[in-house]
Amino acid sequence: MPIHDQGYRRYGGTRAGIGRSWQVMTRAGVMSIIAKRQFLALMLFAWAPFVVRAVQIYVSATFQQASFLAPKGDTFREFLDQQGAFVFFVTIYVGAGLIANDRRANALQLYLSKPMTSAEYIAGKLAILFLFLVSVTFLPAMMLLLTQAIFAGSLTFVSNNLYLLPAITLFSLAQVLLASTTMLALSSLSKSSRFVAVMYAGLFFFTTALFNALRGITGKTSFAWLSPTAALEQLGDVIFRLPPRYQVPPSVAGLTVLVLIAASLYVLSRRVRGVEIVT
C-alpha cells in the first residue's frame, strides 16, 4: 500500500472559533524568542537595574544611615528612563524581523489564507513585542514598588504616592506602544531584518541629533517634538508630576507620540496584505 494511503484522514475534532489566530501567533512568537540564549542574556541585563534599585531600597529600609537612599516618586521615573535603553535593544532584537522575515519568506499569503484578518496578524505580531517590552518597563517598575512595600514592611510609601500606579502604567504604555508600533511599521517596509534594525536606530539617533542641533543653534528646547524620545521624556515628566524639562507644550509632545503611533498603524494597514500588487 502506498504510504500516502495510510496518512490522510478526515478531521472531526473541535475547531476554535474565528478571531483567535493572533493568540496562536503570539504564543509561537514568544516561545521562539525566549528559546534564544542571546535574548535571555539581554533580559538578564535589562533586569540588572531592577536588582540594583531593589538593593538600594533594601539598604535604605534596613540601615538608618542609608536612609538618604530611600526611594521617592521620581525614583520610578528615573528607573523607567534608564530602562529606555533596554526598550531600544529589545525592540530591535525582537521587533526587526517580526514582519520583515515573513515578507522575506512570503509568509504573509500563508497567514492571510488562514481564517485571520490583517488586523489580527498585526495584533499577533504587536503582542509579541508588547509583552517583551512590558517585561522590561512596566513589570520591573511595579515589582520595584512592591519590593519597596515588602522591605519597608508597610504600604505608607505606596499610599502617599498613589499616583505612581497610574503614572507607571501610563508612561510604560506610551513607551511600549510607541516603540512597538514604530518598529513593526518599519519591519513591514523591508524584507531584511538587519536593514529594519538600521532604519530604527537611524530614526532614533537622527531625530535626537536633529533636536539637539536645533537646540544648540536656537538655544531653545521648543523643537523637542521633532524627537520621539524627547517628546516621550516631556510626556513622562507631566505624567510623573515633575516640572517639564523642555519648552514644548506637553499637548504637542503627546500629539507627536499619538501621530507616530497612528502613522505606524496606517503603514501597517497598507503593507500587511496577502498579495503585493506592483502597478
Partner: peptide, 9 residues
Amino acid sequence: PESDSHIPG
C-alpha cells in the same frame, strides 16, 4: 501558493 512560502525559523 505558487511562490516559495514558509514561516521562517
